[in-house]
Design a protein around this nucleic acid. Structure first.
Lengths: 239, 239
DNA sequence: CGCGAGTTTGAGAGAAGTCAAAGTGTGTGG
DNA sequence: CCACACACTTTGACTTCTCTCAAACTCGCG
């Protein structure tokens, strides 16, 4: 499974077996064209941009190690963070249609991603039905998640959003074999705020409030969830 | 092209040639299996549900005539309307992955849709590369639109959202060969509010304000855009 | 003609944003 | 190894935008 992050919370890396792109890189049968699916591994420094909205160089990526944010082209100040990427996540799939990226992917810290040219993914899909189906499935799931997040922002209050974020993050850590109760956030308050459509002050205030209630313990980016049930109740309570 | 809506604003119908599903229904070469792609035409009465979130009966639909709304599973009161469907639009594509719908489609008025079983679309995609590519493109575009809408809700003020909605609606009418300055909204204020994450009162107030400024004329669902430039300025003005 | 859903308008309340400042941690260079 | 600088976080006071509650109004339809 996944290699644990070290004490300083540095990015673990993910085994290819649980990667969203696994069926592309490791097809059941040998590749007809004999091409390696992954063009190269890209290393990124904190803040480095993997691709930008409008890039014609369309690639699909799988996060191998580290964390990134997927950012919507923000007109000026109000930047909206579509989602955070953890090891094993796929990103840039929206370029499969028109060959253009519609968001920007930025490294949150040092990280490493596998680069798969879009045309290669498409050729692979054309020759292997399971790969085509897998790509459709990834796209469909991202679409569903995007809508779910949209609906969440539309209907939840600020505390509910923060509770949902903590629970969701815990769940994603758990999926990767880490503790869902004790983890280190890879992103700043500003980035959390951008993801939840709140301000940093509001996020900070709500975390302080959760801490005062004894639901969580926070120290900077370190988070310990003490009462997940309370968070779930907060999330479920009518706005 | 499209047949104009009549004076009472009843749904026009769309020629198959401009439908998003056209490449599926009318493939270049004759269908190997000899199957008609469209299973049947479904007629819906106002308020009737085409499919619900969680439906295992996965189908993809193309709107042939009339209008529908695509609704996110709303926990109680705060219903979020993902998007509105006009003739020629495709809906239900998110069921291509796991075979389950994640939203609910409801008719806004009398309408007629073409039903394509998901398995049939997938078989077709497996045998025809252009169809597979087209499906990926549709999925990718919907994903991009969903994120754009999400970002819009996150960063725009209430008046900006209403301005954006009017301009977007005008554009969609224009794409279909109707006047972008003079049209009839197929949805109620409540539904507009649900789509923009506002309340009906706020939507109504803002429309009244736009009317007072001479930017639009509204009478119930009838809209005439008098100053599109002003709306665009309103949209572009820093929140 | 009158009912009822939908829309408009008004007044007041509340949630989150803005502005401001203090506190905390982190990394760099001496 | 320590000291400083800078970025991030927390906290406080106040503002404002949108929601909520309430009532009048309009339109379509029986």
């Amino acid at each position: 499974m996944a290699k644990p992050a070290d004490a300083k919370g540095r990015p673990g890396q993910v085994a290819c077996s649980i990667c969203a792109m696994n069926p592309l890189c490791h097809p059941d049968a040998p590749d007809a064209a004999g091409l390696p699916c992954v063009e190269r591994r890209v290393r990124l420094a904190p803040g480095e941009v993997l691709f930008s909205a409008g890039d014609r160089q369309a690639n699909v990526y799988a996060v191998h190690a580290g964390f990134l944010k997927d950012v919507a082209p923000g007109h000026g100040a109000g930047v909206h963070i579509v989602r955070f990427l953890l090891p094993g996540d796929a990103v840039g799939l929206d370029s499969l249609g028109g060959g253009v990226h519609t968001t920007e992917a930025v490294a949150l810290g040092d990280c490493e991603v596998c680069e798969i040219p879009a045309w290669r993914a498409e050729i692979l899909a054309d020759s292997r039905k399971p790969v085509a189906a897998h790509l459709r499935g990834l796209l469909a799931r991202e679409l569903a998640e995007s809508r779910a997040h949209s609906a969440a922002l539309a209907t939840l209050s600020a505390p509910q959003r923060v509770a949902a974020f903590l629970l969701e993050t815990a769940g994603r850590w758990q999926e990767r074999g880490y503790s869902p109760r004790d983890f280190r956030l890879p992103m700043s308050r500003r980035e959390i705020a951008g993801h939840l459509s709140l301000t940093i002050e509001t996020v900070s205030r709500i975390l302080s409030d959760f801490r005062a209630r004894g639901w969580v313990r926070t120290a900077g980016r370190a988070v310990e969830i003490l009462d997940a049930e309370a968070l779930r109740r907060c999330l479920a309570t009518a706005p």
